[in-house]
Design a protein around this nucleic acid. Sequence first.
RNA 1: GGGACUGUAGUUCAACCGGUUAGAGCACCGCCCUGUCACGGCGGAAGUUGCGGGUUCGAAUCCCGUCAGUCCCGCCA
Length: 612
Amino acid sequence: MRSHGCGDLRRDAVDQTVQLCGWVDRRRDHGGLIFLDLRDRSGTIQITVDPELAGNLRNETVLQVVGRVQLRPEESLNERLATGAVEVIASQLTVLNAIKKTLPFAVSVHDDGNVREELRLRHRYLDLRRERMARNLRLRHSTIRAARTFLEGEGFIEVETPILTRSTPEGARDYLVPSRVCGGEWFALPQSPQLFKQLLMVGGLERYYQVARCFRDEDLRADRQPEFTQLDIEVSFLEQEEILDLNERLIAAIWKTAKGIELPLPFPRLTWQEAMDRYGTDRPDTRYGLELVDVSDIATHSGFKVFSGAVAAGGAVKCIAIPGGNEALSNVRIKPGGDVFSEAQAAGAAGLAFIRVIEGVDPETSFDVGGNLVGINTIGAIKDGFTKAQMAELLERSGATPGTLLLFGAGDTATVNKALDRVRQYLARELGLVPAEASNEAWNFLWVVDFPMFGFNSEENRLEALHHPFCAPNPADLGSDPASWAAALPSARAQAYDLVLNGLELGGGSLRIHDSALQRQVLQTIGLPQEEAERQFGFLLEALDLGAPPHGGIAFGLDRMVMLLAGEESIRDTIAFPKTQQARCLLTQAPADVAAQQLRDLHVASTWSDAD
RNA sequence: GGGACUGUAGUUCAACCGGUUAGAGCACCGCCCUGUCACGGCGGAAGUUGCGGGUUCGAAUCCCGUCAGUCCCGCCA
């Protein structure tokens, strides 16, 4: 049916008779002569057709062409087309499938590429024919292939784990599947293969990976789909540092294959505490400065009640120093109603105090900062609330020089961090501090390590696992005596790590607990009653007692990784058939009604009514 | 669960403060054209302005509801 790909024809094919198959990308009808651009996945080639041969050749008609390859006339070469030196003189055209309806949108890249996403999803097969999606799916393929090739070389074995599994507590909502055979009982789709990959380690595989589909029934975002793909990895007998080393070499191999970029190794490491202190987030974007500076110790002694009160209540006062901020950011923008202020507010901050650092003129009202005389512009309450020495120390610590704008957050530490993190990211974009996509600084990898084991869930008034309840605590924080574990665990650090790229979490993992007593203690710490722990995780606890090796691993968000590699802003553009924000498939109209008999077979009755 | 934005011809967009016969490019249909490559020229068809209600002499435009899509907050161990 086909002898060549459309995009493969070059000068060396001249005089050959070829058979091509593909879609009509465009046609240019000159009356006595018709030019067709025929497109297949390899590219596009111009076909020259005698009108006698041509029937109805609308765009996207599926065509077989038999013809001879010919060098184009000198004046008709097309430099912009890979096949632009040649053309095929058609001797025979066969319409393999005609276009029988109006096209919902144009496929050819030459037409307006901006099509409503709703339409693209409803006719995804057409969208996949377009250059952008074709490129993204190939990039996804080469990303996965690079990972497989690398892991193969490191002795890993790819193992599939169940899609029908059991529901486990904590974490996201499960997608449930009723069991017909075991009436009244339910499977859950896996939120991740977490327990199975640990059991594979107990099973002696030592090195496992999987391109694993995961399911979480939570509300969606641009980078969240109800089903998504993790590159899931687990190893035995490796220390944390060895795991990090392995994984950054994996990432480097992927970036080399997919983008041709050599990433410098090792990636920087930052402790969770340092990340929170300096950036206010556990996934900092370190491509630009604007770091957070903690001035709580100075503020606590000041007469400015907003500051001293925040610290007295156990909170913090932190600031961001913005060099040149005085000129770049007007008072309107940083006061209530302004865009910068609104960013802080949106993150929960009550306000955003500021100090403008200026040239010092009058020694009376100026401050000696590292031998330089600087002055300030700010509200009276701040000016009056600080002693000269306090203000000088604050200015010195923030690194401010004349022209610098200082923005302050005060309140409970979590809110201050959240607000200033948001302001920092907003300002970096506004002030153009984020490096361009093409530059080397555009790929800023970073390991965040030493996460705490637990965070406090104030709604449920209990500790919860920050990562998941199978992370191993840092032995240095735990002590060797099991009797001390219960007291030491709540404040212990985990042997957990996240890989962060440009402020986005690309993956995360940990060493796992391989001691059943410690595992029981952790489950107890997060408030899971003993009987419940046995019922839910008995199989794991038993496995730990039957020769579980020390092990650990990681999982990368593959969709997100490909999204970043492709320069896309939504993971939907890296998935062949994604769902909408309402978790609906516009192509198949899923989810959909089922027959009443299907429900009866499954021992399920729906309580849904449209009035709900 | 909450907030914001969007919905006009097959499609991408326009239509200013409530008053037009709701326009334009591409696609589609017809005619012309042998070197174009986003070909060109002439002509044509194409609209329940997402849907339902309201305000008004008059609604694409204002208001309410609803559906769909997008972004965000909550949520996502």
